[in-house]
Design a protein around this nucleic acid. Structure first.
Length: 432
RNA sequence: GGAGAGGUGGCCGAGUGGUUGAAGGCGCUGCUCUCGAAAAGCAGUAUAUCGGAAACGGUAUCGAGGGUUCGAAUCCCUCCCUCUCCGCCA
């Protein structure tokens, strides 16, 4: 949620930026409700004050009939105003949640994802002496996938992945764990990028795959029932991303600033309905109802939030570079960064079998927007309580990164070379 | 799923209807003492919200929500969570 004080002080700015993000809001009703609530609160407080005074006067002797009547009257008055305030607050919260986070100055203004800006392209697109094919043709031929049987058992957009490709997933996981647990490695990336943040390794974490409604909605991303699977009987949602269980970890807590940043490397399975994407990417393993992800979540103070974001992008790039995959880095425009984001970067990897870049990574910087709904705060050096800044980023979304490797590492003979950096993690196998 | 016990401040822990936002202890912060430190002594030490430039004041919060009462941490109801035993399972 956005700070109501900020909205009061910057009505026009908030409306402008909200519509730049594609979340047009009319703040009149919100501010009207805000005023009504703040008019009524002192009135309620006054009645409660009278009630407290009356009770402490009576203390330890039987009350007179007059006092009993007065007390009952005050109770009724308080209940009435309280009821009014609650219904105003209910509507207020609905209106407040409609307001998206404000984009940072540097975020390009745009109308749609077409206005995202490619800020760099890295790696040469190889020219082969053969025509590269789609990853699904390769894995099919190598018998590394079984979609027919998966459809029979679970439905479309599910797969059985088999054999070497599965092993490759675990190899990548172990490689990433080794790197991100290594303080010196993290430090080297920070130094290379001139970031003003501490070298602290990432804590490995396996989060819950399901999240209750309150936590799910506090994330303010992918929080609709047509995106996410919700268990009918319980108030539980399947993670559409580990972000949902990770960003809520410290809800209602006040963290000492000395413990920040908290850097987590989570591994979790994500579940998505993909409603509305019928017919899109039905082949292959680009768009599935279920996929595994190595994902980073960072809680930091407000000063380091942006540099933490830069660190995460740098780490994403490092791993892709090590895999020798051509990619482009894209600064997402206001229309594409998403409701809770202040800034966002996507990385698209080149898929030679499809002759195009496809989105494989995303790094999202939420400033204090998520923390205000998860109530995650820290106590700064002066003892002041402030909201943490959240950062979330993909390290690798499996199936997609496996598809990228398959297309980029395919041989003329229809085999797949194993990228050099992960060979040791695969028992030395160099080809699938 | 069945039976039982319990949830109080950063932590431990007292409190079963009346100035209890909450004793006491630990921790933390400041001051005194000291050349310095330790020890000791003194003082302070929750969050949210409203008003206020601030100092400060009002209100709410003892797992959550509702109820009884002039008055609730204390009584009643519902839910959540934790622990123990049984069952089931990896």
């Amino acid at each position: 949620m956005l700070d109501i004080q900020f909205i009061r002080d910057n009505k026009e700015l908030v409306e402008t930026k909200a519509s730049q993000k594609g979340y047009p809001v009319n703040l009149n009703r919100l501010l009207e409700l805000d005023n009504l609530i703040r008019e009524k609160i002192p009135k309620l407080d006054d009645i409660l004050n009278q009630r407290n005074n009356l009770a402490s006067q009576i203390s330890n002797r039987p009350p007179t009939q007059d006092e009993i009547n007065k007390g009952r009257g005050l109770k009724e008055d308080a209940a009435n105003i309280d009821k009014e305030i609650n219904s105003l607050k209910f509507e207020f919260n609905i209106e407040l949640k409609k307001v998206p986070n404000m984009p940072l100055e540097q975020v390009p203004v745009g109308q749609s994802e077409d206005d995202n800006q490619v800020i760099k392209k890295v790696g040469d697109i190889k020219t082969n002496d053969f025509t590269p094919v789609n990853h699904w043709e390769i894995i099919d031929a190598l018998n590394l996938i079984d979609k027919k049987r998966a459809a029979k058992v679970a439905g479309s957009r599910f797969v059985y992945l088999k054999g070497g490709i599965v092993r490759m997933q675990f190899a990548i996981i172990n490689w990433v764990i080794d790197k991100l647990s290594d303080e010196q490695f993290v430090d080297s990336i920070i130094k290379e990028n001139n970031l003003n943040i501490v070298a602290k390794p990432f804590t490995l974490i396996l989060p819950p795959a399901m999240v209750n409604t309150n936590s799910y909605q506090a994330t303010t991303r992918l929080d609709a029932e047509d995106v996410t699977y919700k268990l009918a009987d319980d108030e539980l949602w399947m993670n559409a991303s580990a972000e949902h269980s990770l960003c809520n970890m410290y809800q209602d807590e006040i963290i000492p600033e000395s413990e920040l940043p908290l850097r987590y490397l989570g591994y979790a399975t994500s579940f998505r309905r993909e409603a509305g994407s019928y017919g899109k990417d039905t082949e292959g393993i680009i768009r599935l109802h279920q996929f595994d992800k190595l994902e980073i979540e960072v809680f930091s103070n407000s000063e380091s939030g942006l540099d933490e974001h830069r660190l995460l992008v740098a780490l994403e790039e490092y791993f892709i570079n090590q895999l020798n995959l051509p990619y482009e880095v894209m600064e997402k425009c206001t229309a594409d960064i998403g409701k809770p984001n202040a800034k966002g970067v996507d990385i698209n990897i080149w898929f030679p079998g499809q002759s195009k870049y496809r989105e494989t990574h995303s790094a999202d910087y939420m400033t204090d927007y998520q923390a205000r709904s998860t109530k995650t705060r820290y106590r700064d050096k002066d003892g002041k309580v402030r909201y943490v800044h959240n950062n979330d980023a993909t390290v690798f979304a499996f199936s997609r990164i496996l598809a990228a490797i398959m297309e980029n590492y395919q041989t003329k003979e229809g085999k797949i070379f194993v990228p050099e950096v992960i060979r040791n993690y695969m028992g030395g196998i160099n080809q699938l």
